[in-house]
Simulated scan of single mutants.
Amino acid sequence: MTSTIDTVALTTGKPRGATPRKRPPVTVGGLATNAFLWLYAAFAISPLILMVLNSLRTTQDMAQRPLGLPLPPNFESYAKAWVTASFETYFLNSIVVTVCSVLLSTGVSLMAAYAFARTTSKTLKTLEGVFLSGLMLPVYLAILPLFYMLDAVRMTSNLLSLILIYGALGIPFSTFVLASFFRQLPIELDEAARLDGAGPFQTFWRIHLPLVRPAIATVVVFRFVPVWNDFFYPLILIRDQTKYTLPVGITRFFGEYQTDWATLFAGLTLATIPLVVLFLVATKQIVSGLTAGMSK
C-alpha cells in the first residue's frame, strides 16, 4: 500500500523527504525598493499612456477636457496620419533602413567575432584591435567625407547609403559584444565537432550560433533603437521627401499638423509601436544576454 508521503510525492512532483524551499524574509528595505521601482515605472510609462489615450480622442475633445478618456475611441487620426500625412512612406523607409542595417552589421559581426574568439593568429588579433578602435571614434565627425564620397557616386537621397553607413557604424560594438560571448564557450565544443567531421562553418552555424542567441538579441536591440531614432544622417544625406525616415518625417509632420493634436499623437504612437513590440518580444533574451556570466 502506498504511504501518504509517497502519495504526496507523486501528486506534487517532489521527491520523498524533500524539504520545501524557504522564501527569503521580507525586509523593510526590500519593500521600499520595490515601491520605489513601481513608482518610477509608473512615472516613466505615464507619458506613453497619455500619448496613446490622446491619439484616440479628437482635438476638440482634448481642448475641452485635457485629462479626459477616449470614450468612445476615435481612430480617424490614425488614418489621417498614415495616409494624408505620408506617414506610411516614412514608416516603411525606416523599417527598410533599420532592419537591413541591423541585419548587415549583425551578420558581419557574428562571423568576425567568431573568428577573433577562436583564432591564435597575431594578424587577426591586430585586425580585432582595428575593429574595436571604431568604438573610440566620434561617428558624427565623419559626416563631411561621407557626404562628399556619396555625392561623388550619386548615392545621396538613397536609402542604400543609410543602410551601408548604419551597418558599418554598428560593427565595432556588435563585434565586441559577440566576441566576448564566443570566448565564454568551451573549446571542447570545437574539438568534439571536429571529431564528428564538422568543418569550421558547420561548427559555427550548428553549435555556436544557437548558444549565443541572447547576445544576438542584445546586439539587435541595442542597434535597432539608435538607428530607428537617428535624425542626423537622414537629415544631411536625404534630400528627397519620399525617402525621409521617421525622425526627419516627423519634423515635417509637426510643421504641418502643429494645431491638430490628435493626429500628432497618432503619429507619435505609430513611431513608438515597433520599439515597444521589439522590447516585449526580446525582453527574455536581453536579460539573459546582459546577465550571462554573473552567476553559475
Results as ranks from 00 to 15, higher is better:
residue 220 V to W: 00
residue 230 D to P: 04
residue 245 T to P: 08
residue 213 R to K: 15
residue 222 F to N: 00
residue 231 F to V: 04
residue 243 K to D: 05
residue 248 V to T: 12
residue 244 Y to C: 01
residue 215 A to F: 03
residue 231 F to E: 02
residue 228 W to L: 06
residue 228 W to S: 03
residue 211 L to Y: 07
residue 222 F to L: 15
residue 233 Y to N: 10
residue 239 R to N: 13
residue 229 N to R: 02
residue 223 R to A: 14
residue 223 R to G: 06
residue 218 T to R: 10
residue 221 V to M: 12
residue 228 W to P: 00
residue 226 P to L: 05
residue 215 A to N: 13
residue 241 Q to E: 15
residue 220 V to E: 04
residue 236 I to G: 05
residue 243 K to R: 09
residue 226 P to Q: 08
residue 241 Q to H: 12
residue 233 Y to E: 00
residue 225 V to F: 09
residue 229 N to F: 02
residue 218 T to N: 11
residue 214 P to D: 04
residue 238 I to G: 07
residue 215 A to Y: 09
residue 242 T to N: 14
residue 231 F to M: 05
residue 226 P to V: 04
residue 223 R to D: 09
residue 211 L to G: 03
residue 236 I to Q: 03
residue 245 T to I: 00
residue 229 N to G: 03
residue 232 F to V: 15
residue 236 I to N: 03
residue 213 R to S: 07
residue 212 V to C: 10
residue 235 L to G: 03
residue 213 R to C: 05
residue 220 V to C: 14
residue 241 Q to P: 15
residue 225 V to H: 02
residue 222 F to Y: 07
residue 244 Y to E: 06
residue 211 L to S: 06
residue 217 A to H: 10
residue 227 V to D: 01
residue 226 P to T: 06
residue 230 D to V: 05
residue 224 F to H: 02
residue 223 R to W: 06
residue 211 L to D: 13
residue 242 T to A: 11
residue 227 V to Y: 00
residue 227 V to I: 15
residue 216 I to C: 10
residue 215 A to M: 11
residue 232 F to P: 00
residue 216 I to S: 10
residue 248 V to M: 04
residue 232 F to W: 08
residue 236 I to E: 02
residue 214 P to T: 09
residue 213 R to W: 15
residue 227 V to S: 08
residue 211 L to A: 06
residue 233 Y to M: 11
